[in-house]
């Protein structure tokens, strides 16, 4: 986990449910082992991910530069494409695909919270 930060593991273990607690303690006792499976993602898979991300970048720039008539659509589309790119980076490059499910759920929950706060702020502000 965090470099030389076994205290972080302990702190986390206080917050998380029992199953994880035992795991985190096991980890602090045995500092040399990683506490997750070693799934090795191939170079090829990383390269394919990059190609997908570059393709999405080309699309979003093309829409913006050449698609002026779609002005009203473009903000929404640009954010949608950016979000797809972010999901691709998190899922493949950041190994969420192979990590324990809890990481994915945390990301989803935090993202939902953030979107909720943004939307509520926008609604509140624009309805004055």
């Amino acid at each position: 986990m965090a470099p030389r930060g076994s205290y972080l593991d302990l702190f986390v273990s206080l917050v998380l449910p029992n199953t994880l607690k035992t795991m985190a303690h096991k980890h602090t006792n045995d500092d040399h082992s990683e506490n997750h499976e070693h799934h090795i993602v191939s170079y090829r898979e990383h390269f394919s991910t990059l190609i997908a991300l570059l393709f999405l970048t080309v699309v979003t720039v093309a829409i913006s530069v050449f698609g002026a008539s779609l002005a009203s659509l473009s903000v929404f589309t640009a954010m949608l494409i950016a979000t797809v790119k972010v999901v691709v980076v998190a899922y493949y490059f950041m190994h969420l695909k192979y990590d324990k499910k809890i990481y994915g759920w945390l990301v989803i929950i935090v993202s939902i919270l953030f979107v909720a706060v943004s939307v509520l702020t926008a609604i509140e502000y624009l309805n004055r």
Partner: peptide, 27 residues
């Protein structure tokens, strides 16, 4: 673990740019 954490941090920097780019450059 250090390599993994360096990677995670670097990907975050990338993720933020993915949003900054359309918001500032592609209006």
């Amino acid at each position: 673990t250090l390599t993994e954490n360096a990677g995670l941090y670097w990907h975050l920097v990338d993720l933020i740019w993915i949003y900054l780019f359309p918001l500032f450059y592609l209006i």
